[in-house]
């Protein structure tokens, strides 16, 4: 038979043990949860980066498909789904080319949590000969991870300006290539060899040869 005193002792032990166990188990559980969440967070961060980029690229391809299907004029499509993720697509007409082809800005972006990816290109849409699919030439793809909204005119102008800076530099380099003779061009580039990091120097002549072979002329 258990008397009252023994029962009370057991109750006392139980109370102290419960308090003690909680004090041990709670930090352990917290540590384990942190282990899991930090791993998951790291894995998801990169996954989201890649997914944002892939989704935006899909949006850009969707834009080209629309132009090939003879869609003409302004189109702003937000929250188009690809799988579980959404992209936005804007086709903004900018005029006509030499061959009466329609010219567009092709803009696509995607956002997953804090990750953004926007891609901007120029697209030329020719008239159907004799029927769709239409010839579409897309060029000068430019990407950014800035949080631009491609259906907002102000943001599109900002993107145009950012991309324009790079295109102006491209014009400069192309002009230089066109105006220099192949020998002048390679001589000037080879002269930079002494200013290059040591790791690049051994292969620099081959790189210059490749640059020379692709040099623009007129």
């Amino acid at each position: 038979m258990i008397n009252n005193r023994q029962r009370n002792n057991r109750r006392g032990i139980a109370i102290v043990m419960v308090i003690g166990l909680v004090a041990i188990i709670v930090p352990v559980l917290y540590m384990l949860s942190q282990l899991g969440t930090s791993q998951t967070k790291l894995a998801f961060k990169y996954h989201e980066n890649l997914l944002t980029e892939t989704t935006a690229l899909s949006g850009s391809n969707a834009g080209i498909s629309r132009l090939r299907g003879n869609i003409r004029g302004y189109q702003s499509l937000t929250n188009q789904l690809i799988g579980d993720e959404s992209y936005s697509l804007t086709l903004r007409p900018t005029g006509k080319g030499f061959f009466e082809q329609d010219l567009y800005y092709l803009l696509a972006n995607s956002q997953i949590k804090s990750h953004h990816y926007a891609i901007m290109a120029e697209a030329e849409q020719f008239n159907p000969q004799p029927s769709p699919p239409v010839l579409v030439i897309a060029r000068d793809y430019w990407n950014t991870v800035e949080p631009y909204e491609i259906d907002q005119v102000a943001d599109v102008l900002s993107m145009q300006n950012d991309r324009g800076v790079d295109l102006l530099r491209l014009d400069e380099t192309r002009e230089y290539e066109k105006n220099a003779t192949p020998d002048q061009y390679s001589t000037e580039l080879l002269a930079k060899s002494s200013m290059l990091p040591a790791e690049i120097v051994p292969d620099w002549p081959e790189i210059v040869e490749n640059l020379k072979s692709e040099k623009l002329s007129m």
Binding site: N9, G12, I13, I15, M17
Partner: peptide
């Protein structure tokens, strides 16, 4: 409302 010293010692040993 309380626990005895013996109870605490036994519980501490187990803990």
């Amino acid at each position: 409302f309380g626990v005895t010293l013996v109870e605490i010692i036994v519980a501490s040993a187990i803990l």
